[in-house]
């Protein structure tokens, strides 16, 4: 018996009606994501990578095709807390401490009060922010704030982590560090991760599967199963295998006319 994919999309279409006519954000998108995969979506802006992630999260309604998450519709999956979502900005509440911010989803989902401190403690440890629980967001650096927002997404034990350019606003040195930590976290928690990025090295470094997308209409041009081992030190990025995958991603982007104008 074959394993059922955690996330499955079949012939997904999404058309936004605008005043300038319809925009095909997604067209004929099909993809399976297995449990424990780290899948990156890469492509130029307008290729629908964020839209695809939002459809999976049930934040956007597809106008055609099917998508299932844990065998449910995205709406149902959202209500059964199937995933945690991390946005490009940390979006922590300035009036809550880091602990308070991580407590937010727990309060909304109705977790037992007594259960919260243990959960908060555990996710703070996962993102290396032990001892920062009582701080306010402004007292933390941008990278630490983003880690806190990842902790917030992990607090309620969703199996899937959806991340929309989470490190896009950070500088490259901080980003390298966070990428390394994210891989460690992924190895420890065995989550299934969907990760939107527009950085080729980031996508290749992190992923077991790289989905190359292109715009007008938003579609998948290539799906690359990474040959890299799961254990990845930062300097794996200088190996021939790494560069070969990066090359194939670039080829995929070129084939989708990502580099035209």
């Amino acid at each position: 018996m074959t394993k059922k994919p955690v996330i499955s999309a079949r012939d997904l279409d999404l058309t936004f009606e605008t005043n300038d006519g319809p925009i095909h954000a997604l067209k004929g998108v099909s993809l399976d994501i297995e449990k424990g995969d780290f899948v990156s979506f890469i492509g130029p802006s307008g290729c629908g990578k964020t839209t695809f992630l939002r459809v999976i999260a049930g934040l956007e309604q597809a106008t055609g095709g099917d998508v299932s998450v844990n065998g449910m519709t995205p709406e149902e999956a959202r209500k059964s807390r199937a995933y945690g979502y991390v946005f490009q900005a940390a979006g922590l509440y300035p009036w809550r401490t880091i602990e308070g911010n991580i407590r937010l989803p727990l309060e909304i989902m109705g977790f037992a009060r007594a259960d919260m401190p243990r959960r908060i403690e555990r996710v703070l440890k996962l993102v290396d922010l032990e001892g920062f629980g009582r701080k306010y967001p402004w007292q933390l650096s941008g990278g630490m704030q983003q880690r806190a927002s990842i902790a917030r997404a992990l607090a309620f034990d969703a199996d899937i982590l959806l991340m929309d350019e989470p490190f896009g606003a950070l500088d490259e040195i901080v980003r390298d560090h966070l990428n390394e930590q994210l891989l460690a976290l992924w190895a420890k928690t065995e989550k299934t991760i969907g990760f939107v990025t527009h950085s080729i090295p980031e996508a290749v470094y992190l992923s077991t599967k790289i989905v190359v997308m292109s715009p007008r209409p938003g579609r998948i041009t290539d799906v690359i199963e990474s040959p890299l081992p799961r254990e990845r030190p930062l300097d794996i990025r200088d190996t021939p295998e790494f560069l070969e995958v990066a090359h194939r991603v670039r080829e995929g982007l070129r084939a989708g006319h990502a580099y035209d104008d």
Binding site: A57, L59, R78, K79, R81, Y83, G84, Y85, F87, Q88, A89, G91, L104, P105, I108, M109
Partner: peptide, 12 residues
């Protein structure tokens, strides 16, 4: 919009 979307993902 992002703040509101975040709460939607929690099913608030």
């Amino acid at each position: 919009g992002m703040q509101l979307d975040l709460l939607r993902t929690y099913g608030a």
